[in-house]
């Protein structure tokens, strides 16, 4: 099937008439100029020298393009190391929590009736279309010490714990907990949607066969559904983990400055300290950390595309 229309007549006409050059060339050139080239510049900038001029850097100096002092500072100054660890820890915790909440939700979506399912899917997608910033902001209102939500939680806390531990309000804002909670909230749709896409395609007759052969529902889930949904788990986890580890908005609004996060460090080095080479070095280090997960994602995406194409209809 795939071989039959491999570069067929239609594509060959396109090729002959030069349209193919424009169709491929225009977006290709655009992405090279506005996406690839900027990263080459960041890479070069991380080896540049900071100067008091405007713009505040020089590629020349004592070590033209070989100034490694920023990378040295990266491993010496514990601010950067702490920021990395905090960011990775937060992204990993958010990924696991998104998976624990998102997996049953995605599976639940495949088990409700058609009409309900479309409405519920829309409700999952809707927050994705509304402003990210405003969704983070909504939690600022909820977590503040005077809010109804905080009062409710405080009342619950005081009921359960001994009197010595009673609190007037729970200090939620500006903490690692707040960052993790809002990260889960903001990225949960990115986990649910790929999981749902994978789970929806699974053949339910396999489950029935396993049931008929005497498996308990949980065993069916563990031995049939879960292994078959691994591609969805991987895609969803990467879609949460990668952007969450570079997150800037969430730590800036609900985080604590005592717990630095890598996205905020990059932004501060750049805008406040005006140390572009250092900001670039931190960005390159973050990229190196993410390059493996990103390649895994690209690889899986490529494979699913190849499957879709190879399968024809």
């Amino acid at each position: 099937m795939a071989a039959a229309h491999h570069d067929g007549r239609w594509a060959r006409w396109f090729n002959r008439s030069g349209w193919i050059r424009i169709t491929i060339g225009a977006p290709y050139l655009w992405l090279i100029l506005f996406f690839l080239l900027p990263f080459v510049i960041v890479m070069a900038m991380s080896f540049a020298t900071r100067t008091p001029t405007a713009p505040p850097f020089s590629f020349g100096g004592e070590h033209p393009l070989l100034n490694t002092e920023h990378y040295a500072r990266l491993v010496q100054d514990d601010l950067y190391i702490r920021a990395y660890l905090n960011s990775i820890l937060n992204a990993a915790a958010a990924t696991v929590l998104c998976l624990l909440i998102g997996y049953p939700m995605a599976l639940g979506l495949t088990r409700v009736g058609r009409a309900w399912r479309n409405v519920l899917l829309m409700l999952v997608i809707l927050p994705f279309w509304t402003s990210f910033l405003l969704r983070v902001y909504a939690w600022m209102g909820l977590m503040g010490s005077n809010s109804w939500f905080n009062k409710l939680l405080t009342a619950g806390w005081n009921l359960v714990v001994p009197a010595d531990w009673a609190l007037r309000s729970i200090p939620m804002m500006n903490s690692g907990f707040a960052v993790a909670l809002v990260t889960v909230y903001s990225y949960l749709p990115f986990m649910i949607l790929p999981l749902y896409a994978t789970l929806e395609k699974l053949d339910l007759t396999l489950n029935e066969a396993a049931m008929d052969l005497g498996s308990k529902p949980f065993a069916v889930f563990r031995d049939v559904t879960l292994p078959l949904s691994v591609p969805g788990i991987i895609a969803g986890s990467l879609l949460v983990f990668i952007p969450a580890s570079g997150e800037l908005i969430i730590p800036s609004l609900v985080g604590s400055s005592a717990r630095p996060m890598i996205g905020r460090v990059i932004s501060d080095e750049f805008a406040s300290a005006r140390d572009w080479p250092m900001a670039s070095a931190v960005a390159v280090a973050l990229l190196l950390l993410l390059v493996v997960p990103m390649m895994v994602y690209t690889h899986f995406e490529g494979k699913s595309h190849a499957r879709a194409e190879g399968g024809g209809r």
Binding site: H6, D7, W10, A11, F14, N15, I20, T23, I24, P27, Y28, L31, I32, F35, L36, P38, F39, I41, V42, L238, L239, I242, P243, S245, G246, E247, L248, G263, I266, S267, F270, A279, S280, A283, L286, L287, L290, M294, Y297, T298, E301, G302
Partner: peptide, 29 residues
Amino acid sequence: RFRRFRGRTVFSGLVTAPLVMPEVITGIA
């Protein structure tokens, strides 16, 4: 629709990477 052209691998990488790139990095770049 075009299975083989020079630089296809780079091209498909270029259209996937911005989807997951942390925004701070894209921003300063």
